[in-house]
Design a binder for these strands. Structure first.
Lengths: 142, 142
DNA sequence: ATATAATGTAATATTAAATATTACAGTTTA
DNA sequence: TAAACTGTAATATTTAATATTACATTATAT
């Protein structure tokens, strides 16, 4: 799995804490520690699905307009990483009953696993993530 | 995630269908379509945990001695891939509340996600996998 | 009008991870 | 004692993830 999923979570959380103004891909990339072009790619997916809005030009950037509880991690997972749990099986031997069928069997099992994972991820909205971030912040002793 | 998990499932299923004799890493690798050395590496983990036995020398190989229902996919996952769900977060900006805490928040969430996944994987023992392989075999029209 | 600051996206380069290969020591059998 | 295996480390290759460059497009401010 690539880290588009976690980058999307990071970006949305960042935007959710700045809902009064637009944030640039540069600012987000600095927070997340990755290249701004990657941020733009991930955010372009989120925009396509209506989670954020963007504006070009001076003073432009990205902004999160929905309610914090309206977006959960399963939504984000599906947009950025659906199918990522599926193992990449090499082509196996068709003359062996195991080789001939294992790929499809595993596909079915992992499809179920992903759905099951979804039930867990639905429990976390951006609001919950922000709460957890704040908790971590408060419990750190600097 | 690498494919050690699925290779382990493939190997155990293969062995489970040959419980009267030993199978060589060459035979398994031919069924799975990967290099025999990889099979030996994965099986060496499974051996360490008591799922299979091995024997060196002529006529040697690997053999699965437990009951087919004694081993489930969660057992195998833990041995081969524990922690694989965890995203590899780049070091993010400590001066930003999101950057400073997101890594730990995600770690916590993904730890829960893995446990949750475990509950699903426990439903599949090698017996169930064999049943699915047979079903696939029977439903294919050659 | 025009310079500037932003997004959008494709193309390419680089880095990191997964996998394959080689090599060889140790074991068992014939 | 030769042959057929496992066990495992070291290295090479391939593939996937990420970064970088480049540039078109859009909006703002002067």
């Amino acid at each position: 799995m690539n880290s588009d999923f976690t980058l999307a979570i990071h970006s949305l959380t960042f935007l959710a804490l700045q809902r009064d103004r637009m944030s640039t891909s540069d600012a987000i990339s600095e927070s997340a520690g990755v290249h701004p072009v990657r941020i733009r790619k991930v955010l372009s997916l989120l925009k396509k699905h209506g989670f954020i809005k963007s504006k070009e030009g001076t003073g432009g950037g990205f902004i999160f307009t929905l309610d914090l509880s309206e977006v959960n991690l399963w939504d984000i997972y599906r947009i950025t990483s659906e199918g990522a749990l599926q193992p990449k099986c090499p082509d196996s031997n068709k003359n062996c009953i195991v080789g001939a069928n294992m790929k499809r069997v595993l596909f079915t099992i992992f499809l179920g696993a992903e759905e099951h994972l979804g039930e867990f991820l639905k429990n976390y909205t951006i609001k919950e993530v922000i709460d957890l971030v704040n908790q971590e912040q408060n419990s750190s002793c600097d």
